[in-house]
Design a protein around this nucleic acid. Sequence first.
DNA 1: GTAGGGTTAG
Length: 799
Amino acid sequence: MTTSPSPSFPPPQDSLKTNFLSYSTFLSLLQTYNENPKQVKSIHAQILKTGFQTDINLSTKLHEFYSSQPTPDAARAARNVFTCMAKPDVLSWNLVIKACSKNGQFGQCMDLYVNMQRAGFEPDGFTLPCVLNTCAGLRSLPAGQAVHTQILKSGQNLNLYVNSALVDMYAHCGRVDYAHQVFDEMGERDLVSWNSILSGFMKGDGCEEALSLFSQMRFEGVDPNRTTLSSVIPACGRLLKLGLGRAIHGCVVKLGDEVVGDVKVNSALVFMYSKCRDMDCAERVFASMPERNVVSWNSIISGFVQNERSNEAWDWFKQMKMEGVDESEITLTSMVMASYGLVQGRMMHAYVMKMGLMRDEIIGAALIDMYAKCGNLKDARRVFDEVPRNEMGSWNSMILGYVRNGFPRDALNLFSLLQVSGLRPNSITLVGVLSACADLGIPQHGRSIHDYIILKGIKVNLMVETALIDMYAKCGSVEMAREIFEGMEERDLVAWSVMISGHGLNGQANEAINLFSRMVKDGFRPDHVTFTSILSACSHAGLVQEGWDYFYQMTQVYGIAPKSEQYACMVDLLGRAGKLDEALSLIKGMPIEPGVSVWGALLGACRIHNNIELGGYSAEKLFELDPKDAGYYVLLSNLYAVAGRWGDVKRVRELMKAKGLQKPPGCSWVDLDGNVHEFYVGDKTHPQSVKIYEKLEELGMEMKELGYVADTNLVLHDVEEEVKEDMLSSHSERLAIAFGLINTRPGEPIRVTKNLRVCSDCHRVTKLISKIVGREIIVRDAHRFHHFERGQCSCGDYW
DNA sequence: GTAGGGTTAG
């Protein structure tokens, strides 16, 4: 169809045969064959040869044909026909605009739209929906709004189609609010308008709106079709409304075979049941599908992944390949998530590379997450540096990877990089960096993130508010945490729980208890999480009786069957208080299999009270359960070290190594005017190192005068860090405290954060230091706050 | 003429 239009008329003499065909013959031929693309093409070729292409009637016929074909080729042909027209009319303009709009030639479409108006034609009710669709396709709100303004100015009577297209355009451009406004003002609505606005809400974050609109639609007597259903069913899934989902499933069945067999409706059902954790139903729907495509497969596969049934996800993936269905980026994202451990993860990474999909940001985010979950931050970062980073996915995975693996400072560094990249952090990013600040325990850092949120005018949601509360509480600013909590417009159970445990963490068990009562009075029904908070608050304060009371309340009043976590709190509470036998008998009486956290709590208590026998027993149980947390291995090896059982220490360390677990080195840090000073065990790299050790020696002399004798058992504590003579005296928290003493004015409190638990000897030493120097020393370790003052600690030696 | 299902980070 590349023949350029020949201006010659009458027709050239060399095509005698075709000369027999007159203008009217062509017209009737086109009418006869207008269903057959091949025939039309050959007629078109002959028309070009004979020079009839400038005729308006023939051109229009050809044009109509090409414009209705859904291929880019046809759209090009339509444009060619159009350019040949001497005097295109409104219909011709509309046809060519539609052809471009339908085939994704959005730029061309917008150009034609402008030219049409230049040529003196007013866009009508046919033109406008096409142009608005193009704006929707371009996701260009300005263009869409310009068209909208123009429509309003021209005083055109907005018909149903134009209105529906406006709704759809705003929905696609991410302005559901505008879409809703147009929708509300529409005089007449049909099913398509309803479907447009519903899908608009589904594109954004508007599942709830979509569902309430759906019920309004039903109320107005509009019957849904398969399009409506495939919009609304996933909304039930996302909101975990299994009951409503089932009801709508019933609706599907009532609508008959055509809808029951629809791929999209069925895929939506599989998705909905998967989200609601009903994999039996999901599988049943999937099995019953008369037709499946890659989306259906993705729904069932991701369903199993999200329900932590990776093995079955792999089985379905293999099945899918066997049936010859090609996977999509989304399939691979799920399969990366389904990878268990480094070996399988690397295999998927290689496969993604082979498929040339490393430019896919979501797969990238999943890969980063996979490596981070394996504790392999090097490879996570390698992927992060390689993949495109135009959206928040890869950033968030990397930031959270750092946080989860105990590298909060790297998380914050990455956040600084993000700020200069020009991207806008979302709520997940903020939750991540706030939790990094919480881990660091330095109020100034968290404060600066909070300031950033306020400065940028970022609207905080419930999740971010809760993260702020958690951060302030963990940084020791429990008052600020409480202020935010009191200022919240709405609170959920998590917010209450975080605030309760915040008080507990800061040794304010009574505040925690009061808040718990207030929560119940406010009509909240405490759940597992809330009880974990209140039980751990009791544990921090050594409130054994109160702990039992809450445990009783949980089981007897609220009928909540405690899980391992809540039992672990009780074991912790009893264990710290020295009631190890009581703790053990609680474990023995558990109706469920005690998990890692339960035995870990008992082991921790055994470590405090140096109970080798029971500790060894818990250790055996821990070995069987195969914990992934390096902390338990450290506790274990420390316990053995105290008892001098070096063979066992070695065994535990080898086990750790075999599992690829690394003990994070003991590290403490102090904030001095916004600069973080970090100290590792035996650290001599700090510029003030000499002064610090001098200070420690000086303090050591004074401590001896007060009767301090180092606990020699504990010297052997950190054997993994090549045994050093002065091990104990150079524990990171002591270096940090000495540094704080040197660099602050007398009387100022000193705040230190430590990544692991404070050891008992350091605890004793810090008490003495607070007495000698007459300062308040606040140490936050992996577990809680210790306020040292005048030789005492707020934890009452329960820790 | 207009409309639809599946993926990451908490």
